[in-house]
Nucleic acid binder design. Structure first.
Length: 725
DNA sequence: ACAATTTTTGTTTTT
DNA sequence: CAAAAATTGT
């Protein structure tokens, strides 16, 4: 974001006409086009952000003089991107108009838009407008409970959750699954969980992320008048990162595009990297043109970022993908430096080399720390790097560490606040029913759950009814009834803002007295950030916005994943862990389309660099508990020698296993070692298990498998009849 | 009911 | 290896 600052300052000088001098021909065409559908294919570094913000303000300026002003729906991939866009647009606009406040302009993610629409009108399809939105953590909690209840091996929850997500983003309901039977690799258990999950959400008036989109579609389908309201409201639709839109989101777009079809989508198929969460590249490859046959297409192929060598290297990498639109990026920047490749014996050596190189660059005065980034496929790789950087006192920032869920204490408080609006929110109730401890233990909770299930009611209702049951000690009843009184009390109040609510609740439960200083601090921070926030607004923010710290990265190098680095730019970029199994990741190598995503990830990483690009890997790497021997990534083969500098201690000989993969131009999944630690298998007799260890060669490969029902078994692969699942 | 201890287990990316 | 779940002891 910081990197965009130079763009921003360039645009500040602009006056009302489109600044032709700082825009190229295609950018100008794309901006001035304001009637009918348009597809903009924007290559890496082609000035996409500039284009979008200028287009937005151009539309506003142009139509502000006519009698019907433009209302633009601008959809972004992340909240940060939306925030950025807001800022830049308001900068552009504020030269003409004073005090522009874009807070109410429809700039945000799909989820933001859907939530806003549903808060207004969801009652039309039988939900209360005070619905709660579950984030993925809450979702997991709920699914785990359902699994426990249905007696399904609980550790499967991750896979099941992603299956359910997949169905939902594909608009396949549980009922449809049941009817169609074995259509989509049918699994009875999953359908059962899906059905229960959906029932549970509905019953407790809760939506998950995908519901936000699905129910908006449902709302529009069942109430065309409401759809019309929005179709008429939005005179123009702009969609950023179009390559990472899923089926349901695309369907929603199709509905919203009004009769003028003033819909403009921007994206780059080569940067579609979110297949795992349902993104569908076909939207940008083919579907959009099919659905909007009249659409104009503009390609932005001039890149202002990468030097020629980096461009060439990245191009020949991405060129290997079959499923893509051809494009020829070009630059007027010189050939620049060659891409550096290094291969090390251990991950420590790799980290040491990177650290040393960074220090050199810094000491020479060529670059400041914030112009440098280290990228990796998986977070676990960053540990070694962090240690090394710490040792050398190089300041760094880890961007978007995935496991930074909200801290416990905040989650607890949020649960209380949710209950004030919706007593039936089971996940929240379960969370705080004994926090702080009030003597309601697992035995009691079990009884309540049993009753809730039997009568098909929420836990809150069940707890209430438990009071009338026989065979429950009066001591327990006292505790329960005071808990119910508590919930009733806090939910009967009407709070002006979040702080008031937290104060009132804490006064009753004395929660903060159980916290340590660190925790107290985070609560206070929460309160000071939300002094004037209304409850519903607050809860939406908590679930829809990730708490990415706005710590300024001034003077620090950035460590982040290839996914997270999308949209950023650095003069110096290191991409680490270029090893088979890591990039491409072994969990994402089972189909050619998955391999194409991995390749795109590498491409995205490469094209973040403007001056210097280093790609590194190491032979020995500790992955979780033990050391693994790594082989160089197949993607390295695709970087042409002439634009790279191969500083390799050991020649990169491509081992026999890789030869099998290379020959055909179509990517084939490696079949040599399909069994890795961590992968899931099915045994004819013992059912599903997880591979713990894998050793031996060729005909004599042995695996250690843990079957939950049977225990640990050692098997010879040749005879075991294992099926990978 | 709850704290302390031992066992198990997962390990990609995120709105 | 670390976090979560299960088991044990009080």
């Amino acid at each position: 974001m910081q990197r965009d600052q130079h763009m921003l300052s360039a645009s500040v000088r602009l006056t009302k006409d489109i600044p032709k001098d700082i825009l190229n021909e295609n950018q100008r065409i794309a901006i001035e086009h304001d009637q009918g559908p348009m597809l903009i294919l924007a290559g890496a570094g082609s000035g996409k952000t500039k284009l979008l913000t200028h287009k937005y303000s151009h539309l506003i300026n142009k139509f502000s003089k006519s009698d019907n002003e433009a209302t633009i729906l601008a959809l972004t991939f992340s909240n940060n991107a939306a925030e950025d866009m807001r800022k830049q647009i308001s900068n552009l606009l504020s030269q003409e108009n004073e005090n522009i406040n874009l807070d109410d302009n429809w700039i945000g993610t799909f989820h933001y838009m859907c939530n806003r629409i549903l808060r207004e009108d969801i009652h039309a399809i039988g939900y209360h407008n005070n619905f709660i939105v579950y984030d993925s953590f809450d979702q997991s909690t709920l699914i785990k409970h359902i699994l426990k209840d249905l007696n399904i091996y609980e550790a499967l929850y991750m896979g099941i959750a992603s299956k359910i997500d997949y169905f939902k983003t594909s608009m396949i309901t549980a009922e449809e699954l049941l009817q169609k039977g074995s259509g989509y690799d049918f699994d009875e258990k999953i359908v059962k969980v899906y059905t229960r999950y959906q029932d549970e959400l509905k019953k407790t008036c809760v939506l998950d992320f995908n519901d936000l989109v699905m129910l908006t579609i449902k709302l529009f389908e069942e109430h065309p008048d409401i759809l019309d309201k929005y179709r008429n409201l939005f005179t123009h639709i702009l969609v950023d990162e179009f390559q990472d839109i899923n089926f349901a989101q695309y369907k929603l777009l199709l509905m919203l595009a009004n009769s003028n079809n003033n819909i403009c989508v921007v994206g780059d198929d080569d940067q579609s990297i979110y297949k795992f969460k349902g993104s569908d590249v076909d939207n940008i490859l083919t579907k959009f043109e099919q659905d909007f046959p009249k659409s104009s297409i503009v390609k932005l192929e001039q890149t202002y970022r990468c030097s020629q060598n980096i461009l060439d290297a990245s191009h020949s990498v991405i060129h290997k993908n079959i499923n893509r639109r051809s494009k020829q990026l070009w630059t007027t920047k010189g050939s620049g430096e060659k891409v550096n490749h290094h291969w090390f014996m251990t991950e420590e050596e790799e980290a040491r080399y990177i650290t040393k190189t960074i220090k050199d660059l810094y000491l020479k005065g060529d670059y400041t720390y914030d112009q440098i980034a280290i990228l990796f496929r998986v977070n676990l790789v960053s540990k070694v790097l962090e240690n090394q950087l710490k040792a050398e006192r190089i300041p760094f920032n880890v961007i978007g560490d995935t496991n930074v869920f909200l801290n416990k204490e905040i989650k607890d408080i949020v649960s209380y606040i949710r209950l004030t609006l919706n007593k039936d929110d089971n996940v929240s109730l379960r969370r705080i029913i004994n926090t702080p401890p009030r003597g309601i233990g697992s035995a009691t909770i079990k009884k309540i759950e049993l009753l809730a299930k039997k009568e098909g009611i929420s836990l809150y209702q069940a707890a209430k009814n438990t009071l009338d049951l026989k065979g429950i000690s009066s001591l327990i009843k006292d505790k329960l009834s005071s808990f119910i009184a508590l919930v009733d009390d806090i939910s009967s109040q009407s709070y002006e803002n979040v702080v008031e609510a937290i104060k009132y609740i804490d006064n009753l439960i004395g929660y903060t007295t159980t916290l340590d200083d660190e925790q107290l601090k985070s609560i206070f921070e929460l309160m000071s950030n939300n002094a004037d926030t209304k409850l519903v607004r607050f809860l939406d923010t908590v679930s829809l916005k990730k708490e990415t710290d706005f710590v300024s990265d001034k003077g620090r190098i950035s460590l982040t994943t290839l996914h997270n680095v999308k949209g950023m730019e650095f003069p110096v970029v290191f991409i680490t862990g270029l090893e088979e199994g890591l990039l491409p990741h072994f969990k994402a190598s089972s189909s050619s389309s998955e391999l194409e995503v991995e390749r795109r990830l590498f491409y995205v990483g490469m094209t973040r660099a403007s001056d210097k690009l280093f790609v590194t890997g190491a032979k020995k790497r500790r992955i979780y508990a033990k050391y693994q021997t790594q082989e160089p990534s197949r993607f390295l083969l695709d970087m042409p020698r002439e634009c790279c500098h191969w500083a390799v201690q050991q020649p990169i000989v491509i081992q026999s296993t890789l030869k099998h993969i290379q020959p055909s131009p179509v990517l084939v999944a490696p079949t040599i070692f399909p069994y890795n630690t961590g992968c899931r298998v099915r045994h004819p007799k013992w059912g599903v298990g997880v591979i713990r260890d894998c050793y031996g060669e060729n005909d004599d490969v042995r695996v250690t498998v843990n079957f939950p029902d049977v225990g640990i078994k050692r098997l010879a692969l040749k005879f075991a009849n294992l099926e990978r699942i």
